[in-house]
């Protein structure tokens, strides 16, 4: 049977792609962020996941406002990255896991989460950069299943609904008959706001409270509506919904193996966490 071996969450700021491309990870501006990853890479080398379920939000590469799914799941044999318009390098394609995708679609829709299924999907920085941070040689040893959460057009799904979706993904994975080790990656956040007179908004106190909640009190953030999350974390800080969905895939007691938090990377409070089932 398949099993979730852990959850990794990380910010996905586009400029990270530029820093990787230029090889400037050790420069003073970038080091405090990239230093968050060696421990997670060691864990990955030890645990050796077979598949990554990547909970992320498209930023106008695959989806436009003509058709904007609240929740979508990739069911493609391969996922390509593409030009997003502002020049960060395109990363190598990712091998899909169609068996797991369709199993998840069956199970989630059966569980009344009406996912949009996508047999073709391009993936943007929200998907590619977190994986590149985990596997810097960019020879991906994992196959992938993207889960997309709308954080572009309001209303977004509620935090409560995202949490429930994560729980349903967790149940579906545990019921998948193949022996697979699954890592769930939640991308984006934490607090940041790109637009308006409030651009540059960051809320360290809220971010820390949120990260603290993920081990012992994981439904804490579900008390907030989408607009309230914007108030507390910024218009893009609401990407914490991806973190919450990813976290909720783990049932039982969860332990924090690692965390990193640094302000700022670009306009963002950049954060990374590694969670595992408690022994």
């Amino acid at each position: 049977m398949a099993k979730i071996v852990g959850v990794v969450t990380t910010s996905h700021v586009p400029a990270i792609g530029g820093a990787i491309h230029k090889g400037i990870q050790h420069e003073p501006y970038w080091k405090p962020f990239f230093d968050g990853f060696p421990k997670i890479r060691e864990w990955l080398a030890k645990v050796k996941p077979d598949v990554a379920i990547v909970v992320n939000n498209d930023h106008g590469l695959n989806f436009f406002l003509d058709k904007m799914p609240t929740f979508a799941i990739g069911a493609a044999p391969e996922y390509k990255n593409a030009d997003e318009g502002w020049g960060i390098p395109v990363l190598p394609p990712f091998k899909g896991n169609e068996d797991l995708s369709w199993h998840l679609a069956e199970s989630l829709i059966g569980d009344e989460f009406d996912m949009v299924t996508c047999q073709e999907m391009v993936v943007d920085h929200a998907f590619t950069l977190p994986i590149a941070l985990l596997y810097p040689d960019m020879k991906w040893p994992i196959s992938v299943v993207p889960i997309n959460v709308n954080t572009v057009l309001f209303p977004t799904p509620s935090a409560k609904r995202c949490y429930a979706l994560g729980q349903a993904i967790g149940r579906a994975v545990e019921a998948f008959p193949q022996d697979l080790k699954v890592v769930v990656i939640g991308t984006g956040g934490l607090s940041h706001q790109l637009e308006g007179e409030r651009a540059g908004f960051i809320n360290k106190e809220f971010d820390i409270r949120f990260m603290d909640s993920l081990t012992g009190d994981p439904t804490w953030a579900t008390q907030y509506t989408d607009r309230e999350l914007v108030k507390h974390t910024g218009t893009q800080g609401i990407e914490l919904l991806n973190w919450l969905t990813a976290r909720a895939t783990m049932s039982g007691k969860v332990t924090e193996l690692h965390r990193n938090y640094h302000i700022p990377i670009s306009n963002t409070a950049a954060a990374t966490m590694l969670l595992e089932h408690a022994a």
Binding site: L65, V152, L153, F154, P155, Q193, E195, G196, E197, R198, A199, T225, D226, R227, E228, V230, K231, T235
Partner: peptide, 20 residues
């Protein structure tokens, strides 16, 4: 259910009305 339409200074929520 709480009202979703709170006002946040310096912030426009990109909702259906903005999308239109």
């Amino acid at each position: 259910m709480k009202s979703p339409h709170i006002s946040i200074p310096g912030t426009t929520i990109f909702d259906g009305s903005e999308a239109r």
